[in-house]
């Protein structure tokens, strides 16, 4: 791709993100006109300012962080496995995080020290990241033996199913109010993060972004396969470990605070490649970060059902958008690649 068209596309995505962000914070059960939004942001007084600072801004920022983190995780996984069907939810990373979060939630009942841990966003984030990374390691070890796309996908689905069933067992033994908390969490939500959790989310995801960007050269190298990469002095082993840690961390922390959000990680890299047909991560990575944030902002706007008081579960919307993308990918499978 020519350098200029890349710049133009990235500019287009950035502008889109800003516009979507403003739309996102202006819609909800109470609609706030755009001018009011901007005024409230700066004056910081009145009901509108309260709504914005306490609810809408944390939610919109969560959308941006979570969307770009999941999409980045998806891109890293698709590149690592050189498989277009890879993604954090398809290959069971989010289920792994769910399992660890569920374990922590339910275990909180049995000891006050663990109970304190549950209250601490850092420990929840850590548990979720650990869960995601562990599933990732399992998938990587199995991926050595299964080379084709479909098999890896089936393995991922199986691991998802297995971890989900352990979560079900935990649910069965838990008490009603825990169960409700957990069920709501499972539906996915970006609206329940407070500023402290948002800080944790922001720090962890920023670290993830910095590592991902530092890996641009290695990620490109992986596309050529291990032998070529080694000949080009690229350290594949180190890259693989860093991808596991980064993806596990980013997907884990998002899952911990927003629940298992489906399809964003899988779909965004493909949607971005439609706009920017390139396999150079120097272009793809920032574009995917912007695209992921945009997609989750859109999904959240739709979930708000503007003008009404009900809110749809976020996962329902991401799936509604994601499922057709996957079907389209399978149909065009011959032309889809990493």
């Amino acid at each position: 791709m020519k350098q200029n068209s890349v710049r133009l596309a990235l500019l287009f995505l950035t502008t889109g993100l800003v516009i979507l962000f403003l739309i996102n914070i202006s819609v909800g059960s109470v609609s706030i006109p755009l001018m009011e939004v901007i005024k409230a942001l700066f004056t910081n007084t009145g009901t509108n300012a309260d709504i914005l600072w306490q609810f809408r801004l944390p939610k919109a920022i969560t959308c941006v962080l979570a969307g770009s983190a999941l999409a980045t995780g998806g891109l890293l996984m698709q590149t690592l496995f050189r498989n277009p069907m890879a993604g954090p939810d398809v290959l069971g990373l989010t289920s792994g995080s769910s399992l660890f979060v569920a374990t922590l939630l339910m275990a909180g009942r049995y000891g006050s020290s663990i109970g304190n841990l549950v209250q601490n966003p850092w420990s929840v984030a850590f548990a979720a990241s650990l869960g995601g990374a562990m599933v990732f390691i399992i998938i990587i070890s199995i991926a050595r033996y299964v080379r084709d796309n479909t098999s890896l996908l089936i393995v991922g689905l199986m691991i998802s199913a297995a971890t989900s069933s352990i979560v079900s067992v935990l649910q069965f033994t838990s008490q009603a109010d825990d169960l409700q908390t957990f069920m709501i969490w499972m539906l996915g939500s970006v609206g329940s993060t407070n500023w402290y959790e948002l800080t944790v989310l922001g720090i962890v995801i920023s670290i993830g972004f910095v590592i991902s960007i530092s890996l641009i050269k290695s990620l490109n190298g992986i596309l050529l396969g291990e032998s070529y990469a080694l000949n080009l002095a690229i350290n594949i082993r180190r890259t693989r470990i860093l991808i596991v840690i980064t993806t596990g961390m980013m997907v884990g922390v998002v899952t911990a605070f927003c629940g298992p959000i489906a399809f964003v990680g899988l779909a965004v890299p493909h949607l971005v490649r439609l706009l920017l047909p390139t396999s150079n991560h120097k272009t793809l990575l920032p574009a995917v970060m912007l695209g992921g944030a945009m997609l989750l902002l859109i999904c959240d706007v739709i979930a708000q059902l503007p003008g009404r008081t009900q809110v749809l579960p976020l996962n329902a919307i991401t799936s509604l958008i994601g499922a057709p993308v996957v079907i389209w990918m399978v149909i065009k499978a011959k032309r889809i690649s990493v």
């Binding site: 050269k217 190298g221 080009l232 120097k282 690649s337």
Partner: peptide, 30 residues
């Protein structure tokens, strides 16, 4: 080296592929 290994990245252009040859000499920002 030129091997028979299949490479991914079908969106890659010829120039992108040839650029890989310079990778040992490039920094992380390429």
């Amino acid at each position: 080296i030129v091997l028979t290994d299949k490479i991914s990245g079908s969106l890659m252009t010829v120039r992108d592929l040839v650029t890989y040859g310079r990778y040992p000499h490039l920094n992380w920002w390429l």
